[in-house]
């Protein structure tokens, strides 16, 4: 018996379309944030459309292709569960509901510890350790500081691969951050994990699973290596929860709660941009 249970093979798409669709879904899913950053630096940044909204759109595209390939396998990528007794849908969902908050708690603690360690190693404070009351005080930068705070290298048609996020890119509505969490989990832990489990031999499956989690972390390189490092526990915990329960629910729940924590953190940081500057009205500012 194979140590890794193999899900059902793909039969929903014609055979001559399947390889190209699979390749498209894989590269778009793996590089969804990079596609968004390219579009952002060339086009949407000038129109004040948040990069995360584009990221969600690209994830939705990959999800569409993944849905055509896997069907409901997007929601149940493992085709069962690695833990005996959780193979049924009801048991998997129940376990997912219980496991999701635990994933979020552990990922949050790990993220906080890693970013603090990275900051102390680099000789500067990555996180502001003051209380929420102090951090969200009324004092705001004024004059030149305000005008200079949202400058960004955008608008050049040849500008590529030089996306540098500002705090305004993360200072978005909670609903968008929660949508990003759901979209990322459905793509990375639903579609890409489901495809990785069909990679063939055990070694190929393990390499593909690890590769997906690694690329998920590296896709945060625009925010710095500290963020890449701190996203590894989130990726590992979410992937582990999906493999244990068989459903993507604990990963979605855990990532959504994690992003809720991120949203609270950024909402509490002193704003360096005025209310008007922080995004299009349809997305708005976090506060």
């Amino acid at each position: 018996m194979s140590p890794i249970p193999s899900p059902e093979p793909l039969h929903l798409v014609p055979a001559d379309t399947r390889p190209l669709l699979t390749a498209t879904v894989v590269v778009l899913g793996l590089a969804s944030m990079t596609v968004a950053s390219h579009l952002h630096t060339r086009w949407s940044g000038l129109r004040r459309l948040p990069m995360l909204a584009l990221h969600t759109g690209v994830c939705a595209l990959a999800l569409l292709g993944g849905g055509a390939l896997l069907g409901t396998g997007v929601l149940r990528p493992v085709g069962g569960a690695w833990v005996p007794g959780l193979g049924s849908l009801a048991a998997g969902l129940l376990a997912g509901l219980l496991l999701g908050p635990l994933v979020a708690y552990a990922a949050t603690r790990a993220d906080r510890s890693l970013t603090r360690w990275w900051g102390s190693r680099a000789g500067h404070a990555v996180r502001d350790d003051r209380s929420v009351t102090l951090r969200s005080g009324r004092a705001r930068p004024a004059g030149v500081a305000v005008s200079a705070s949202t400058t960004r290298r955008t608008g050049l048609i040849e500008a590529r691969n030089n996306f540098a996020p500002t705090s305004a890119d993360l200072r978005v509505r909670l609903s968008l951050l929660l949508t990003v969490a759901v979209a990322e989990e459905l793509v990375y832990r639903g579609v890409l994990t489901g495809l990785a489990l069909r990679a063939g031999s055990t070694a190929a499956v393990v390499a593909a699973l690890l590769g997906v989690q690694l690329v998920f972390a590296v896709s945060h390189v625009f925010f710095g290596w500290g963020q890449v490092l701190s996203k590894l526990p989130l990726a590992g915990l979410c992937a582990g929860a999906v493999l244990l329960t068989g459903t993507v629910l604990p990963a979605v729940l855990g990532h959504a709660l994690f992003n809720l924590w991120v949203w609270r953190y950024h909402r509490a940081r002193p704003s360096t941009a005025g209310r008007v500057r922080t995004g299009a009205p349809m997305w708005g500012a976090a506060r």
Binding site: T24, L28, L30, A31, S32, T34, V35, H38
Partner: peptide, 12 residues
């Protein structure tokens, strides 16, 4: 779509 995705993956 594949071309766009490949460019993005390469640039990442």
């Amino acid at each position: 779509l594949l071309g766009v995705g490949e460019l993005a993956l390469g640039s990442l």
